[in-house]
């Protein structure tokens, strides 16, 4: 009997090892594709950032030369400043307006589907189409927005031509594009809040804004954190609709970091090394801010 058990023991061990291995085998195809098409190019990009080229074909090792150039170039500082202004404006307005819309939609009693669909619709549009639509609407001479403003006596506002207005216009279009997506996430968060808590608070005399301030917003915090992180990442990565809306102009006033990377890599003189270095820096910025957001959110939760 004992001999039989002793013989079975290694087989059981083998079976248990196999069982533990099976999930990894299932993950393997996905990880292989992820490794080949995401991790490998990312590492390759990091490697290229140590080389310079003026034609995209003949490379010269420059060490940290590209990084030094980025940190000492006034044009890059302008790009960094534009990106910071855009991200701050975009994230704050996205979060505030998405919460406001989500609260309104959550309180709706009729026409829920129509309003939710309308709010979500821009998310489905191509960013290039969005850029072209708003370029027409914001056109100084023949745009719809200025035509509407003319009714109330406002003159022709150079939305896309004067750097005083362009960043606001770009933030607005970014907001218009993505607010539906954030609203849906927040709406899901709102619907997850237990209704009994509201009932109990009402019995204690809390109403209207008090309920929102003391119950809704605190309980919505984890979902809000997700929205903040997503909006931050999206803000840093904004490019396509801006490229068709303003081309990064006027005079670089709306050129953000991703366009800088694109221009360095794909406009003459083609400099893949410089573009890769900027992409590495962008990665670390987004990564740091995401971790920071996460840690701040978690420490508040702990309190």
């Amino acid at each position: 009997m004992k001999t039989l058990e002793r013989a079975k023991a290694p087989r059981r061990g083998l079976r248990s090892r196999r069982r533990r291995l099976i999930p990894y085998l299932f993950l393997l195809p996905n990880m292989a594709i992820f490794g080949l098409f995401t991790i490998f190019p990312a590492l390759r990009g990091f490697w290229i950032s140590f080389f310079d080229s003026t034609d995209g074909r003949h490379f010269k090792y420059v060490g940290t030369g590209n990084y030094k150039e980025i940190f000492s170039d006034q044009a890059v500082l302008n790009v960094a400043s534009n990106t910071a202004r855009y991200v701050i404006g975009y994230v704050i307005s996205s979060v505030v307006i998405s919460i406001a819309i989500a609260l309104m939609l959550n309180a709706q009693t009729w026409g829920k589907t129509i309003f939710r669909s309308v709010i979500f619709l821009p998310v489905l549009l191509s960013p290039v189409v969005i850029g072209l639509i708003w370029a027409n609407l914001l056109d100084r001479k023949r745009g719809g927005i200025n035509a509407l403003l003319a009714i109330v006596g406002v003159g022709k506002v150079p939305w896309l031509v004067d750097s005083k207005y362009t960043m606001w216009a770009v933030i607005f279009v970014g907001l218009w594009t993505h607010v539906g997506f954030f609203t849906v996430i927040l709406l899901a968060g709102l619907q997850g809040i237990d209704k009994n808590i509201y009932e109990a608070a009402s019995l204690d005399g809390a109403h209207g804004w008090n309920l929102v301030r003391t119950i809704t917003l605190p309980l919505l915090k984890p979902t809000t954190l997700v929205v903040v992180i997503l909006a931050t990442i999206q803000g840093f990565q904004s490019f396509d609709f801006i490229y068709t809306l303003t081309g990064g102009g006027p005079v670089g006033a709306t050129t953000l970091i991703v366009q800088y990377i694109y221009d360095s890599a794909f406009q003459t003189p083609i400099r893949y090394g410089l573009a890769s270095a900027a992409a590495v820096i962008l990665f670390f910025i987004i990564f740091s801010i995401t971790i920071l957001n996460y840690l701040i959110g978690r420490s508040r939760d702990a309190l």
Binding site: D139, P158, L160, V161, P250
Partner: peptide
């Protein structure tokens, strides 16, 4: 056409 010149970025 100033808008075309300024509104098309570095393109």
């Amino acid at each position: 056409p100033k808008d075309l010149w300024l509104g098309s970025g570095a393109k």
